[in-house]
Design a protein around this nucleic acid. Structure first.
Length: 647
RNA sequence: GCUGUUGUAGCUCAGGGGUAGAGCACUUCCUUGGUAAGGAAGAGGUCGCGGGUUCAAAUCCCAUCAACAGCUCCA
């Protein structure tokens, strides 16, 4: 007998070799139906794998990540089985479960292409296989056996994977005629899969290596119920509607022009209005934290970037130097603001009493991003960083770091970004030569970041090898409407640039010392931040931020004069207001302005004109009744003021 | 940068070897209407750009540019 400990702490005895499925069955038939995988001492196992020792157990259902994972992993195998039947000779790369569904990388062979319109046929084949209720069988084999098997099949991808594995750890999973190298775990059979949708097909390099063959990646998702799939597809449609590229067009916030160049966004009046207000907000916060604004040119001598080290690292992949009429002069569009700010630091001798110095600039930078990377406003070739560089003494580093975190938290709170993730990026200890700077400084900087996060109680994921080449960093990311993660705010410690620019201050010992630098940008870039803000709010911006706060809708042209009179009054109180004086019926004007997401609509007709009133309508909520004009302007002013007072 | 898909009116899209279509937006007129689309008429495109095949190309082919999806990259 073996002892099985359940999550609630209870312990029961089972016969040796009992499976997870049998344990679930012993609890309830319903559970046995729903359980997908089982956690054994923290490892996820197949349901039908015999348990031969005492263990703590957890039964995973659809609602558990582990359950979904097994479900989608088996779905990936099912798709592979279907592909094998439809395309004889197809070779298989890897096919994992992912956050939403699964994919399989395959090589259909020379001359064979799988296209989007082939997907329904593959789905149909998968459904056909599901009906066969094939059991998924796990099998341990030796490395030699596995190699022999896949070599016989001619599958060079699998043999490559096997070659990298340790002998004795190799497991295979089979269902029907399909056998795959796989760690598992899997569902006991494929009949659990009820609803299938293959979503897209795209190229993906074998093992993520640019220099190797590009395989065909097929993405799909499956569900235990048809309804769940339908709901998911609706969700995807909804997400598309929040896409900032679409809303940016609808609300006339920004544009691109092929003539100007790809990846070079232009801010339309309404977008600019929104962005400037965000900038003003951050400037206000920064004033409180003793930042000083500076302004630097958009270009800099190439030598500046040779000194900073950016030229050596990114020079080849950048916009190429601008040559002046004068011989031998080369300038770069600035890809970073920091070198300029270092020069500002060097403007005059600095004393330890002057530090920290905090130079802030909304600095527009230019980077030659790969063309395939460009994406709306989130990945562009010219963008404005809400940049600042803090020059401080080493003993001030942690405190300064904490203050920057405060600013970022203020910004995120003010804009209702509660669901951000934080990531500490450290250097890869195996590859120290990729980074510049001394071991000692790296260790100091990394420690400062980790400690700062601990002090703030911030749960941050630690990623090795993700640091910038000059220092470790703390990044804040949020997901866009389609679940893609984007980095917004960033804080980076830098011992390197002060070294390269030979920055100094005089200490209380009258000796020269080297300051530490912090790069930070709470928004990250204005472009990316606004993009994410658009998706976050679906274009319904908070009142204090939105380009148009109020629109006045006269019932008929007879009341246009009254409408303009009120508009003037509100405008005088700093309220952003327009008049919809089109020759349209009121229902039409309401509809159009609802779609423009203007927070307040004021409907004015005979009644209102007589009494000096406005009839108030809130976007998305409807009629709020009528009130005096002054009463309304107070309402707006108060609402904005209340928000601003918090910060 | 790589692989694939797409490119037709301001926007969303249909069509497809015989010199272009819808809805919305726009203009004008009618209507002066009370809380999510009033009516009529009109204007607007050398079908991304450049080659080729053909009697004939927006349609087929090649090249190029851009957008989209994914991969790789991201100071």
């Amino acid at each position: 007998m073996i002892k099985i400990t359940f999550p609630d702490g209870s312990v029961r005895e089972f016969a040796k070799g009992t499976t997870g499925f049998q344990i679930a069955e012993s609890i309830s038939p319903r559970l046995a139906q729903e359980v997908l995988a089982v956690g054994i001492n923290g490892e996820t196992w197949d349901l039908n794998r015999p348990i031969c020792e005492d263990a703590t157990i957890k039964l995973y259902k659809w609602d558990d990540e582990e359950g979904k994972h097994a479900y989608w992993h088996t779905s990936a195998h099912l798709m592979a089985e279907a592909l094998q039947e439809l395309y004889p000779g197809m070779k298989f790369g890897i096919g994992p479960a992912i956050e939403n569904g699964f994919y399989y990388d395959v090589d259909p062979g020379d001359g064979v292409q799988i296209k989007e319109n082939d997907l329904p046929a593959i789905e149909a084949k998968m459904m056909e296989l599901v009906l066969r209720k094939e059991a998924v069988v796990r099998q341990d084999v030796s490395k030699a056996e596995a190699l022999k098997m896949f070599e016989a099949k001619g599958d060079e991808y699998k043999t490559e994977l096997i070659s990298d594995l340790e002998d004795g750890t190799i497991t295979l999973y089979s269902q029907g005629n399909f056998t795959d190298l796989c760690r598992g775990p899997h569902l006991p059979d494929t009949s659990h899969i009820k609803a299938i949708k293959l979503l897209s097909v795209a190229g993906a390099y074998w093992r993520g290596d640019e220099s190797r063959k590009m395989l065909t990646r097929i993405y799909g998702i499956t569900f235990p119920k048809k309804k769940m799939l339908d709901d998911y597809l609706v969700l995807l449609e909804e997400a598309k509607k929040r896409d900032h590229r679409r809303i940016g067009k609808e609300l006339e916030l920004f544009m691109f022009s092929e003539t100007v160049g790809k990846g070079l966004p232009m801010w339309l009046p309404r977008g600019t209005s929104l962005r400037l207000r965000l900038e003003d907000f951050l400037k206000k916060i920064q004033r409180r934290f003793d930042y000083e604004q500076v302004i630097t040119p958009h270009i800099g001598n190439k030598q500046l970037y040779v000194t900073s080290g950016h030229y050596a690292k990114y020079g080849k992949d950048s916009f190429q130097p601008i040559h002046t009429p004068e011989e031998g002069e080369e300038y770069l569009l600035k890809p970073m603001n920091c070198p300029h700010h270092c020069e500002i630091y060097k403007y005059k001798p600095r004393s330890y009493k002057d530090l920290p110095l905090r130079f802030a600039e909304f600095g527009t930078v230019y980077r030659y991003e790969q063309s395939g990377e460009l994406h709306g406003l989130t990945r562009v070739r010219s963008f404005t960083q809400d940049d600042a560089h803090i020059f401080c003494r080493p003993d001030q580093l942690k405190e300064e770091f904490l203050k920057v975190m405060d600013i970022i938290f203020i910004i995120f709170k003010a804009l209702d970004f509660e669901n951000f993730e934080a990531q500490i990026s450290l250097r890869d200890p195996e590859n120290k030569e990729k980074y510049i700077g001394s071991d000692e400084n790296w260790e100091k900087a990394e420690r400062a970041i980790v400690e700062a996060c601990e002090e703030k109680g911030l749960k941050a994921r630690v990623e090795l090898g993700e640091a910038a080449f000059y220092g470790p960093k703390l990044d804040f990311m949020v997901k866009d409407a389609l679940g893609r993660r984007w980095q917004l705010g960033t804080i980076q410690v830098d011992y390197n640039l002060p070294e390269r620019f030979e920055l100094e201050y005089t200490g209380d010992d009258n000796q020269k010392h080297r300051p530490v630098m912090i790069h930070r940008a709470p928004f990250g870039s204005m472009e990316r931040f606004v993009a994410v803000l658009i998706e976050h709010t679906a274009g319904k911006f908070p009142l204090w931020l939105t380009p148009d706060q109020v629109v006045i809708l006269p019932i008929s042209e007879k009341f246009n004069d009254y409408a303009y009179q009120i508009a003037k009054e509100l405008f005088g109180k700093d309220i952003r207001v327009t008049v919809d004086d089109r020759n349209e019926k009121i229902g039409r004007k309401i509809r159009d302005n609802e779609l423009k997401r203007i927070p307040y609509m004021l409907i004015v007709g005979e009644k209102e004109a007589e009494n000096g009133e406005v009839s108030v309508r809130r976007q998305g909520e409807g009629d709020k009744g009528s009130m005096k004009v002054a009463e309304f302007s107070d309402l707006i002013t108060d609402e904005v003021q209340k928000m601003m007072e918090q910060y």
